[in-house]
Nucleic acid binder design. Structure first.
Length: 694
RNA sequence: GGCGGGGUAGCUCAGCUGGUUAGAGCGCAGGAUUCAUAAUCCUGAGGUCGGGGGUUCGAGCCCCCCCCCCGCUACCA
């Protein structure tokens, strides 16, 4: 049987990468659900520790530093501070927020690496890597730019094209160039430490699919999300490849091995170890032993991440932990899917995002409102969609009208009838069926909401908590104390006593979701320190004088919505050409080099999709000289019928090459657009097939 | 093309190992009500559960085929 009651829970949220600010998608994915989970457990008196920190290594940061004429240290310091501000602004309550550039972390990561090395976890291989002869150094993936083979974008990096999102390896780039010197890099051998993941497939399959580890029940896989299990199974069944765990770079945790100068640990190795370092730091400050959290088998380990991190947290990191030995493996990885924004994917480069610190500037008291909306649309099982009009509706109709107004009407009535003091509790036999039903619901709510949170059903949990306020509204409206007050003051006191209990319980139940609002309500209703287990029908003491309570939620008007929508997609700086990922100029060539190219105008005669290839079109082109077949990777941008009849520019003396079994006898010239699109390079009128382009 | 996850009321989403008239919140329509931040409460109208076959006494849930969206992967001269 899987263990059921862990002695303590170790919680991590994905370390955010310190080269850009935090947006709502990040929050909804990995931070808000963890915060709700942890706040609930803390309130319920569970032993829980939640750590996070900035992921500050990797080539993207050094690259950005170079581009902005500053140092990596400056970059990470800036964004470390920026991200902390964002998290604090939304009341994301990490127990500890660390950073991977700290000396402590370097030490921990190196020790971890050395242990793995000792245990034979790595394979050392010598591989060909791109080397910049001018700068005299090996080039990390991010230091190589070129034309994306997928979308034709000119500024694709060696690991990924940020226009089309395609993951790449440097050797796939067309016309690779070093971003350090602009020169064309050459391949040279270098030593890399690989993690041979293939040898771990068997136990991983048991661990993921069956939830068993070393022959023992470890966790219940049915509690894992379908998309998490599906993706893991897909990877394992597809066969796991070896992955390099080191990089040739000078910013990161140095590989602690003789002769490994200029090599650092791969960020994906170094970052999750940051979870451990962060825990150690907290434990040192709080007189605890970090091993109790990471190595005591009775402790749970949960990773909150977005779906882009599933493979790392469910496969690679567990391999590392198991190879190292002594560590617990994750008992659940409740990854969320992605949140879209106003009908489109969130995109940093297009500035199609809502940045947390900007939001908080526009809505200084808006933490709870945003938390509520993000929880209500949390992408728990599929991608979801954030729109500002929906934000307005939820804030106005649910937070302000249902919750805020309910609390206010109870407060006002209590003040009007009892000078603000909660009336005495009714005698048990004075309760009618409606009262009892209300009390039963109140009594059952903490377990109900808590259970949903524990099962990572945050949307539903929040709805249930809000339903308590809804029930309060219904009860008030049906009981009509404002009428009874004149004829039956005893009954009125009963009603008002009970509604005060409803409000008090709301404060506790909504605490994990709306910490600021809950604290305000709790303070006003005399239960500022109430915890989860205190939530029950007699929470609020009779005689409590209700404190002042300002309007909890201001309504949001249409102009505000329109202003926020208008901000999307606009560059902060009009002159922000630096945001365009233009490829740097290439090495100079001679005129003679140029004349080697035989560029001609051609007319497309036929065009069809290449079977079993999503991106390839087969064109038959009249070049004037002949009719030839050209295969081009443009199927995602053009339908075959759109291409037939077009005049195109064609490189006709390129060596033929077989693509998907079809010989391509040339190359069609395309221009990439800023948004990742493609355009044909077409001559003006009056040009015939075969005419030379020069 | 392969693999994984989705496609359910106008919108955002739930629907456990198949079982009575398919649900919630919001929006919408009508009514009630006034303690309250024109708030609240009640009632109702909206779904051939992407499409088509099949298994079953019975399918949104299982099987086959097809279409669309997201992610990974192959193809990219």
């Amino acid at each position: 049987m899987p263990k059921h009651a862990p002695s303590r829970r170790m919680i991590t949220s994905a370390l955010p990468y310190a080269n850009g600010p935090i947006h709502l998608g990040h929050i909804a994915g990995a931070y808000l659900p963890a915060d709700i989970y942890v706040r609930h457990l803390r309130s319920a008196g569970e032993d829980v520790l939640w750590i996070c920190g900035s992921d500050e290594h990797g080539a993207a940061i050094t690259l950005r530093a170079k581009k902005e004429g500053t140092t990596p240290r400056d970059i990470v310091d800036t964004y470390h501070a920026e991200m902390q501000k964002a998290f604090e602004g939304l009341d994301i309550s990490f127990d500890h927020y660390s950073r991977t550039s700290s000396p402590k972390h370097h030490q921990v990561a190196q020790d971890f690496f050395l242990t793995l090395l000792d245990k034979g976890a790595f394979e050392v291989k010598t591989d060909e890597q791109f080397f910049d002869e001018e700068a005299q150094q090996f080039l990390a993936d991010r230091y190589i730019q070129g034309t994306c083979p997928s979308c034709g974008h000119d500024g694709a990096y060696g690991d990924q094209c940020e226009k089309c999102g395609k993951t790449l390896s440097p050797t796939e780039l067309v016309n690779p160039r070093s971003t350090l010197s602009g020169s064309t890099p050459v391949l040279r051998p270098t030593t890399l430490w690989y993690l041979p993941m293939g040898r771990h497939e068997d136990w991983l399959r048991d661990y993921i699919v069956e939830g068993t580890l070393d022959g023992q029940a470890h966790h219940n896989p049915k509690e894992w999300k379908a998309h998490v299990l599906g993706q893991c199974r897909s990877w394992i069944d597809g066969g796991l490849e070896s992955r390099a765990m080191t990089r040739d770079l000078d910013w990161g945790v140095p590989v602690p091995v003789e002769g490994a100068d200029g090599k650092v640990l791969y960020v994906w190795l170094d970052a999750p170890i940051g979870y451990i370092t962060s825990t150690m730091e907290w434990c040192e400050q709080n007189g605890q032993d970090w091993r109790d959290w990471w190595q005591d088998p009775s402790a749970d380990l949960l990773h909150f991440i977005g779906k882009d991190n599933i493979v790392f947290h469910c496969i690679i990191f567990p391999i590392l932990l198991k190879e190292h030995g002594g560590y617990n493996l994750p008992t659940n990885v409740p990854a969320n899917e992605f949140m879209n924004l106003e009908g489109d994917k969130i995109s940093t480069s297009r500035n199609w995002a809502v940045w947390v610190t900007e939001y908080l500037e526009d809505f200084p008291e808006g933490s709870d409102a945003m938390r509520y909306v993000l929880t209500a649309i949390m992408p728990e099982q599929k991608d979801s969609e954030f729109t500002w009009s929906d934000f307005r509706d939820k804030v106005n109709n649910e937070l302000a009208d249902v919750l805020g107004n309910f609390v206010n009407r109870v407060l006002v009535l209590t003040r009007k009838y009892y000078d603000g003091a909660v009336p005495a509790a009714p005698a048990d036999d004075a309760l009618d069926a409606t009262d009892r039903a209300l009390l039963e619901t109140l009594a059952a709510a903490p377990a109900k909401v808590g259970d949903l949170i524990t099962r990572h059903r945050y949307k539903e949990a929040q709805l249930e908590a809000m339903n308590v306020a809804r029930l309060g509204n219904k009860y008030l409206t049906e009981q009509e104390p404002w009428k009874l007050q004149k004829t039956d003051p005893v009954r009125t006191a009963t009603i008002m006593h009970l509604t005060c209990q409803v409000v008090g319980n709301c404060a506790v139940l909504l605490g994990p979701f709306l910490p600021q609002t809950a604290a305000k309500i709790a303070a006003s209703f005399g239960v500022p320190d109430a915890r989860w287990n205190d939530a029950r029908p007699d929470l609020v003491s009779a005689g409590t004088v209700l404190g002042d309570l300002p309007i909890l939620f201001a309504k949001i008007d249409d102009d505000t919505v329109a202003a926020q929508v208008a901000k999307l997609g606009q560059k902060g700086d009009a002159s922000d050409s630096s945001n365009r990922d233009l490829m740097p100029a290439k090495d100079e060539i001679t005129f003679e080099d140029f004349t080697k190219l035989d560029l001609r105008v051609g007319t497309v005669l036929e065009c069809e999709k290449v079977p079993k290839a999503d991106k390839l079109l087969k064109l038959v082109v009249d070049t004037g000289l002949d009719t030839r077949t050209v295969v081009s990777g443009i199927a995602e941008h053009f339908a075959p019928e759109d291409v037939v009849g077009r005049q195109v520019t064609l490189l006709i003396n390129l060596a033929p090459r077989k693509l998907r079994g079809i010989e391509s006898q040339g190359m069609v010239l395309m221009a990439g657009t800023d948004d990742g699109g493609l355009r044909f390079v077409t001559p003006e009128e009056g040009v015939a097939p075969g005419n030379v382009v020069s």
